[in-house]
Structure formats: C-alpha cells, structure tokens
C-alpha cells in the first residue's frame, strides 16, 4: 500500500505536480525544483503520509502548496543590488506569448488565479480544489465565478488590442 501510492506519485503525478509547484512559486523554475525536493524528502522520511481519505492527487497538491508557502517564507525579501544579474536576450515569439499569459494570470487575485489553474489546467473538480486550498466549497465557487469573469474580461481586452 505504502509503496503503491508513492509509486503512483512518482510515475503518474510527477509532471503535473512539478508544474503545480512552479505555479505556486510564481512560475520560478529553481524555486519549484527546491520545493519538489523538499516534498519528496517529506515522503521518504515519512513526514507526509497518505492516509487514503482524500484523493491522492488533491492530497499531494495540498502538500506541495503548503511546502511552497513555507519555502517562500524563508526566502529573503530583499536582494542586494550586487547579487542582481542583468541578462539582456532577444525573446522569441513563443516567449513573448508565454510572458503574455503569465502577465494576464498574474493580474488575477491569488485565490482566483489558483482556483482557475486547478480547475482548467489540472482538471480538478471544485470540491477537490477546496481540499487542495484548504477552504470551503462555497468560497471556491465564489473565487471560481469571479475569476472566470475577470479572466474573460482580460482576454477580451487582450484580443481587442
């Protein structure tokens, strides 16, 4: 049983969970890798154990989210100007588009942003989203409806430009 669910995470959820970690870390790849290392360490040390009550995917996404929150809290809030590296590169068309969707999504409030990602990107149902975000199903519905309206408005505005 123990190895079965871990095996399922490693084989079936690895890709989606990494992308979720990346989204929880403001799309920072390095931070997402750190978070996934911490999450896998929790599994190996038995600090995070699946008890079978919830859906495995929602449980694992919840672990990733809490780990990402803890990780981001530890980061320094200010960076010395000496540590900042400026890289000027020419961006391709796809990168422009990639930046574009991030730009649109980051205009949404955090909760709406996360609810829409979990529903439309990770194909979770609303009650599963409530488990991942550890909030009530009513709040999820509210964030879902408002998020959709706001995102649609942003996309319509984007298409009009």
């Amino acid at each position: 049983m123990n190895n079965n669910w871990q095996e399922y995470i490693y084989t079936q959820l690895n890709r989606g969970s990494y992308l979720w970690a990346r989204q929880c870390c403001s799309y920072n790849d390095e931070h997402a890798k750190e978070v996934m290392q911490m999450v896998y360490l929790k599994l190996l040390e038995g600090k995070a154990t699946y008890n079978g009550k919830a859906n495995l995917k929602t449980w694992f996404f919840s672990v990733i989210r809490f780990t990402a929150i803890d990780f981001l809290k530890q980061l320094p809030t200010h960076i010395s100007i000496e540590d900042v590296e400026l890289n000027v590169t020419e961006s391709s068309e796809s990168e422009v588009y990639s930046d574009n969707y991030l730009e649109i999504l980051t205009q949404l409030p955090d909760r709406q942003h996360q609810v829409l990602l979990l529903v439309f990107y990770h194909n979770l149902k609303l009650h599963e989203v409530a488990e991942v975000l550890n909030i009530g199903i009513g709040s999820v519905r509210t964030h879902y409806d408002r998020g959709k309206k706001k995102l649609k408005a942003l996309l319509t505005k984007e298409m009009a430009l």
Partner: peptide, 20 residues
C-alpha cells in the same frame, strides 16, 4: 470556451518545460 482555449495554449507552452 475562451478560458479553456487560454489554458490549453498555456499547457502547450508549458510542454517545453523539462521536469526534474
């Protein structure tokens, strides 16, 4: 449908991201 299309294009973009 608009939102679905938006997230589908986002998924397509993310395909180039390598998984550790």
């Amino acid at each position: 449908r608009i939102i679905e299309d938006f997230f589908q294009s986002m998924k397509d973009q993310d395909k180039k991201i390598s998984t550790p």
